[in-house]
Nucleic acid binder design. Structure first.
Lengths: 339, 339
DNA sequence: TTGTAAGCGTTATCAT
DNA sequence: ATGATAACGCTTACAA
């Protein structure tokens, strides 16, 4: 069929079909002005040789783009980020393109992201979706000028004005805290993640704003920043509960923290209302009551990809910043309902 | 910097640096036999033009491969599959390559997978990782002969002998069921997913084998095949519990089914021991006791990618079928421990 | 050590 | 409607 395990080229097909390579090219690309008989001969040759057009050569010559979008993410925030990726992929596939992934390490910095972006740019991806880290992204502005559109997801990048899709961090937090306040809580602890992450700071700001407005004494409501994971969250909850005037409620700035809190509260059988940012799978089956800010990560990914394609078509439109709404969900907890 | 928003080419760099394109090429590829001064001139030119070598052209000319691996998956089995993908990505990145994703629809068939494979082959990916569906994959044998190595993950492909990495479906199931038997259960219902999925059949076979061996009457132990999701699993559990001689234990062939079972058992406060294939996040906080067969999806992805690279280096080795071990994990359930 | 010319597999131009 | 030829941006002989 194909000689020497080598892949057939357009020339091989042309020879076998007894036509010129241009005619083969026309058939492949569905140009209608080709004699039906020649079309058939080419079709047969393609089948016999198992010919697969080389998209590298095609993209190189035509400059038509590679039909691929790069996705740069972290890795840690798995559930959320992979969902975003899936959402983006839907749109990308709708445009007959593929997603090329490039996850950095868990502790990714903007430098690492920029290095990944450079790799992807060398592959001539048509655009970039980036979940930014804490650092500076100014370096990417130049790449964008040179024709690589990009959209940032979930977090706001520093050092660059760009298309961005985020969720309503402040609003969601305010609603969640408001809920606690309405239920009469006056000592509300705040468990916040790393200060370098902009959404953490936003959530903290939103929380404090509402608490002040509600006349809650911030001195009575400890704020712990830099809670990194489930275990440290659980430990923090333990400390809070052991303090002289323990809080009656806690707001957890992400789902890892929330889960850590659930563990500790469940373990102790403590009385502590838990509210948290981000819902997660199986939250409805957790033992303790929960008030969660649910974001739609899939929609976030979709929206970002759509925005990217819009940008691809209109390179000169003003930048957009899309804020997706969130909603509050409540779960009674499996233990409460059995009392 | 770059004229007309066009990306600079190697020629632009050569001109600006006052050298030949070959010298630029040498500098870019780190060939050491270049005059340090010229190296510096090239470096400066690269920086000023923001030059990024076109990997398409480079791969086309050198035939060195594209440093990309295609990943073809479903979409539904999100938690597991994305974890496999993450595992594969680790290895792929270690080889300085990227993962190109191509998820089919939830109800993907082998035809759809083959179409996706063709797309990726046209991009000249260096190899393929495939989570196969139920259909026939014979068509891919030809592509493999033409130089596209491939490894199948998690499930066994039909119609093609190939490198495969799976988990110990039979063994895991036997252990889980054995556990139920040891606890005195004699009426054990089996909730199995779609019959077209080979792992489901394997798990069912493993279960029945152990039950027979233990002298359990299969007539007293209903088997439900084709349980598609959480809701239908819950409904099935309901029916079983409402029957004249309800089972005292159930084995769920995947985590979706297990979760459906948990919901229904919890809702009714029923006495029904649950065992299931696949562990899942937060299983330890579920209300009811659980015996789960834990597989390491991340390791599955890693192993498959490693096998793919091994294949890339030794195209003529005999095919391998790697079976990853599983382990049983038990959770008491949050409600039980409070009684 | 450096540069010239050819060619990878396509598509685009322009005759025919 | 079809085909010879150049060109995309790079690497690889082969010279110089």
């Amino acid at each position: 069929v194909a000689r020497g395990g080598r892949r057939a080229t357009i020339t091989d097909v042309a020879e076998l079909a007894g036509v010129s390579i241009k005619t083969v090219s026309r058939v492949i690309n569905g140009v209608s002005t080709v004699d039906p008989e020649l079309v058939e001969r080419v079709r047969v040759a393609v089948g016999r040789l198992n010919y697969r057009p080389n998209q590298l050569a095609s993209a190189l010559k035509s400059g038509s783009g590679t039909s691929s979008i790069g996705f740069i993410g972290k890795r840690l925030s798995s559930e959320l980020e992979t969902t975003m990726m899936l959402g983006a992929e839907t749109i990308v596939r709708r445009h007959a393109a593929h997603l090329v992934t490039a996850s950095g390490s868990e502790s990714a910095s903007s430098d690492e992201d920029i290095a990944l972006a450079t790799e992807l740019i060398q592959r001539r991806i048509d655009g970039l979706l980036i979940v930014p880290s804490g650092g500076d992204y100014a370096a990417l502005a130049r790449e964008r000028e040179l024709g690589v559109p990009m959209v940032f997801l979930d977090r706001e990048p520093r050092g660059i004005e760009a298309d961005t899709v985020v969720v309503d961090n402040e609003g969601g937090t305010e609603q969640a805290i408001g809920h606690l306040v309405q239920n009469g809580h006056e000592r509300i602890a705040l468990l916040i993640g790393g200060a370098e992450i902009d959404v953490m700071m936003r959530r903290m700001a939103g929380a404090k704003r509402v608490m002040k407005r509600a006349g809650i004494l911030l001195s009575q409501s400890p704020t712990l920043v830099g809670v990194s994971d489930r275990m440290s969250a659980a430990a923090s909850i333990g400390q809070l509960l052991d303090s002289a005037t323990p809080p009656t409620a806690v707001f957890c700035a992400n789902s890892e923290i929330t889960i850590g809190a659930i563990e500790e509260v469940y373990r102790r059988g403590a009385e502590l209302a838990i509210a948290g940012f981000d819902a997660f799978r199986l939250a409805e089956l957790m033992p303790v009551p929960l008030t969660l800010v649910a974001t739609d990560a899939y929609e976030l990914g979709r929206t970002a990809a759509e925005l990217l394609y819009r940008r691809l078509e209109h390179p000169d439109r003003p930048f957009e910043r899309i804020v997706l709404p969130v909603r509050i969900v409540e779960f009674p907890g499996t233990m409460a309902s059995r009392l």
